[in-house]
Design a protein around this nucleic acid. Sequence first.
RNA 1: GUCCCCGUAGCUCAGCUGGAUAGAGCAACGGUUUCCUAAACCGUAGGCCGUGGGUUCAAAUCCCGCCGGGGACGCCA
Length: 586
Amino acid sequence: MSLTEKLSVLTGAAFVAEGFTADVGAVRMSDRPDLAQFQCNGAMAAAKQAKKNPRAVAEAVVGHLQQNPIFAKIEIAGPGFINLTLTDNALNEHLGAMATDTRCGIAPLVSGQTMILDYGGPNVAKAMHVGHLRTSIIGEALRRMAGFCGYTAIGDVHMGDWGTQIGMVISEFQIRHPEWVYFDESVTSGYPSEAPFAIADLEEVYPFAAQACKDDEARKELALIATVELQNGRPGYRALWQHIVNVSIASMKANFDSLNVHFDWWKGESSVHDLIAPMVDDLLARGFAVKDDGATVIPVAREDDQKEFPPLMLYKRDGAVMYGTTDLATIVERMQSNPSKIVYIVDQRQSLHFEQVFRAAYKTGIAPDSVELIHAGNGTMNGSDGKPFKTRAGGVLRLEDLIESATQKAAERMKEANLAQDASADELAKTAHMVGVAALKFADLQNQRQSDYIFDLDRMTSFEGKTGPYMLYQAVRIKSLLRKAAAQGALPGDKIVLGDADRPLALLLTELPDVVALAMRHYTPHVLCDYVYRLANAFSSFYGNCHILSEQDQMLRASRLRLCAMVLAQLILVLDLLGIDVPERM
RNA sequence: GUCCCCGUAGCUCAGCUGGAUAGAGCAACGGUUUCCUAAACCGUAGGCCGUGGGUUCAAAUCCCGCCGGGGACGCCA
């Protein structure tokens, strides 16, 4: 239990004793550290309901708390704020339990529940670009957070591998290489195992085909036909498609590995193809799906809707499926894992689509009401003009180029500061990559998930301010300090001595469990970023004020080393939840 | 046209279920190093929280209108 939770239990009981509900006893960190460590604002709300004087309610509640020896000070301020301050002993006891816990004192929130997270969503045949950055980074953080909070967390990359873009590529190959065996309809098996193209070819073909389809209706028609034929199982197309997928996945993995983003499932839209026909037949039979203007759809509008709700389309007029179809069938498939939540970390602009899919899933019983379907939408990364990020030439920036430029910038900064320059070239390069990725990820994650932000490479790679490199720097500093201390035989002690220099840092450490819970509840990693920054900053301040290794008082030195170790453990834990690795040195 | 999101310091942004004096970072100005990574730390300055109403003991936060910005709206994903 977190410290504020413990206190809330005490205060809640006091409110209950006065005839109120326990929930008004909620205690939180004080907004006014000059007055107290904790506060409870419930007296005002309780008094309002009971039509009593809030100060009198506060006084009655405080009456129940006063005998408790854990409080050093209890005061009522203003209209009825209850201000609480703990004795150092009580604080110490709580810290002691946290210090020895590998989870930094954070109990799991749930057990026996599965959360499936859908993020990344790269398209095969298409180079990954900056548009995939946010979903990947945020999704990875949420997957790690969920796992830590006790969920069986399953990350699914959910590739775009079954839609029109594939038809564009296949038809383009057919135009360019009509002689390929994949296009000979008299051949239905025994295709080569080697792909007749490399990733670079795909990356050239896709944009070319997309542009051609945009410019020419007839050309687009070819792509649509190829899409339907692929989905209907034309052997040559399937074989070619498999090459496209294989070649693409290799490239995706390189990008994701570089970003330290991982998946448990490498599924895609195509994975559920075989589930689609039975699903649609069933929905037609049960009357949920209807024919409409040649297409097959599920109406999802409700009478009390404030806006127009287009139906979810299952089959287009030409018989091809759309992403709503695969998304719905994917829920059918995912239900086999018995999830309690399915979370989609996908661009916020697709919120209507997900509302449609979710409605369809609930309405048809594909997802029972007990399963939470959540679109945790993300914003976009914009250029300095406030529009979705483009290169100077106006093109889309490839993800690997973005990572490379962040890494290079990090290397430059490290050189400027003459940092870790004695390391081997190999270690230097590795560290630069870690710093660059930390910069990129922290800059992304510290923004609210659903809002857009402006990309600024110089700012995010700075070692000053609220940046990834700054967090790493503080953590590495502690590692170095603890190494030096150990070399002198000085080890972290069991007892924490709470002086005025130590107490604020110690108090901050107790916040982490609440912060993690809050971040998980709302799927908001930026709450963790905010905390880890406050912690790094508070440590740096502490470090500046207290010279630890030269401390003559053995007890105090051991205590401060313990605090440092606890800070480090939290920094590493939280950064890990964010998907950021900390180097040994930098 | 309908619906959704946003508008907080010069810039980029926090602000959880309404609560005490609205907070950070960057930029600006001033200070700190015989000492553990100064890539640091400390301090100063800077805001009718877009605007007009309403609810409340209490509103950046909740409700309504308006202005400004962004986005979504059936056969792409």
